[in-house]
Simulated scan of single mutants.
Amino acid sequence: MMEAYDRFELLINDQVVKTPVAIASMAGIVDAAYVLERAAHVGVAFIGGYSIDGPTLEASRRMAEDGRKEFLYADPIEALGHEIDALKESSVVAGINLRGSTPAAYAGVASAFEDRVVYEIDAHCRQSPMLNAGCGEYLLHHPDALVEIIRALKAEDVTVSVKVRAGVAANDADLARTVWKAGADILHVDLMDYGHNKLRQIRNASPLTLIANNSINTFDRAMDAFSHGADLVSLARKSDPWTLAGLDAAITRAADEGGWYNAPKQLCRGGDIRALAFCCMPVKACPLIPTLERIGLSRKEYLKLKQEAVKGTALENGKTTCFGSLAWCCKISSPCMFRNMTLENVGLSAREYMRCKHRLSEKIMHRIFDEKETADESS
């Protein structure tokens, strides 16, 4: 598992994620047995959705009568306990997708199982019985209720994911910030037909671990999601063993070769704000300038941030590059003889260069979302 951590550097619920490929919940279908059949090529799996109190169980029964698949049981805690026990010997990080009508219902489940699993709030279901029970997409139209649930779960000191459908909330970027501020750890987004533009918008709004979902079942689609902000991709209907194995193998190979498996596109080519790690000094009219204005960083602050972030690292080198340091150099996929000459002179491989850029990106994101937010709140 340490090899997997070195490759992807992904931790969820204090567990190493062996591959950034996940299984998304499908009510009545994805349970422990479903996951175990596919465990060799999955890093995270969300079983469920599981209704966990009287109103949502009644909604599940009504939906089942209408022909939908649902998990039905007399005792939610007992049923979930069996599923969680079945997954405990697996190397897959386990999550349970939950549908409850009150914050107390979620807190009750978290109190029973503590940190054994990730708790995913289903703000995704759009069936009328579930909406009438106060869950699913109801929560996207009533974000205050969603915040209460997140806080109730975090009070139990557990890892929280929120599963949403893009384009339902009034503003997805605002929703991402709200979920992050409430204390959630993961945002699991069904992109519907919005594609990478929506994904980039969400990534630029929060530092949450971001899982992209919906028809991401090929290597090209996965890499497109990664390059616009996703940390993981999840599959539902196409989560068959053959597809999962192919994705896992291709993504692993790309990570080993490239050094940063979900490196963003450069900002001038539509990348998200992690791509500031590849930007040069703000000396010309380009997408960097409006991006800095949008995130509230002055040009001076940006210069100081990158200069301090690379001190004592391999990126501090590069006197013969355009701006005198590898800090300002572009992505390895962009041809540049000055950058490449410097890499050769300092003995830094292309893979290690990208890993260094990843570290720089993390420092930039920390400055934008942690230090800056703390400063804004205290002012």
Rank of each mutant, 00 (worst) to 15 (best):
residue 82 H to P: 06
residue 326 L to D: 10
residue 11 L to I: 09
residue 227 S to M: 14
residue 4 A to C: 08
residue 108 G to I: 02
residue 270 G to N: 13
residue 216 I to N: 12
residue 277 A to S: 13
residue 31 D to E: 13
residue 190 D to I: 02
residue 204 N to P: 13
residue 104 A to S: 14
residue 6 D to G: 12
residue 174 D to E: 15
residue 200 R to I: 08
residue 290 P to C: 01
residue 64 A to W: 01
residue 122 D to H: 01
residue 86 A to D: 14
residue 372 K to V: 02
residue 207 P to C: 08
residue 190 D to F: 02
residue 347 G to P: 12
residue 145 A to Q: 13
residue 375 A to L: 14
residue 265 K to A: 12
residue 183 G to M: 07
residue 306 K to N: 07
residue 344 E to I: 00
residue 367 R to T: 10
residue 263 A to L: 12
residue 13 N to M: 05
residue 183 G to I: 04
residue 207 P to M: 07
residue 121 I to C: 01
residue 68 R to K: 15
residue 94 A to D: 02
residue 94 A to I: 03
residue 345 N to H: 08
residue 85 D to R: 11
residue 175 L to A: 07
residue 146 L to R: 04
residue 130 M to R: 06
residue 326 L to M: 05
residue 152 A to F: 04
residue 126 R to A: 10
residue 186 I to R: 04
residue 164 V to F: 02
residue 81 G to C: 05
residue 205 A to V: 09
residue 179 V to L: 06
residue 81 G to S: 13
residue 274 R to F: 08
residue 168 V to N: 07
residue 262 N to I: 09
residue 17 V to C: 08
residue 357 K to Q: 10
residue 38 R to K: 11
residue 40 A to V: 02
residue 270 G to H: 12
residue 191 L to G: 10
residue 250 A to D: 15
residue 118 V to L: 02
residue 208 L to K: 10
residue 290 P to R: 01
residue 376 D to F: 06
residue 137 E to F: 00
residue 157 D to F: 05
residue 240 D to S: 07
residue 203 R to C: 11
residue 374 T to V: 11
residue 253 R to F: 09
residue 188 H to I: 00
residue 8 F to T: 10
residue 242 W to H: 13
residue 222 A to V: 10
residue 96 I to Y: 00
residue 106 Y to A: 03
residue 232 L to G: 08
residue 307 Q to I: 01
residue 178 T to W: 00
residue 189 V to E: 06
residue 376 D to E: 15
residue 37 E to F: 00
residue 152 A to V: 05
residue 358 H to E: 14
residue 85 D to L: 09
residue 78 E to A: 15
residue 348 L to Y: 03
residue 334 S to C: 10
residue 340 N to D: 15
residue 1 M to A: 11
residue 319 K to I: 10
residue 199 L to S: 12
residue 299 R to K: 13
residue 109 V to R: 01
residue 335 P to Y: 02
residue 44 V to C: 04
residue 337 M to K: 12
residue 35 V to R: 04
residue 78 E to V: 07
residue 276 L to C: 05
residue 39 A to I: 02
residue 347 G to R: 06
residue 103 P to N: 06
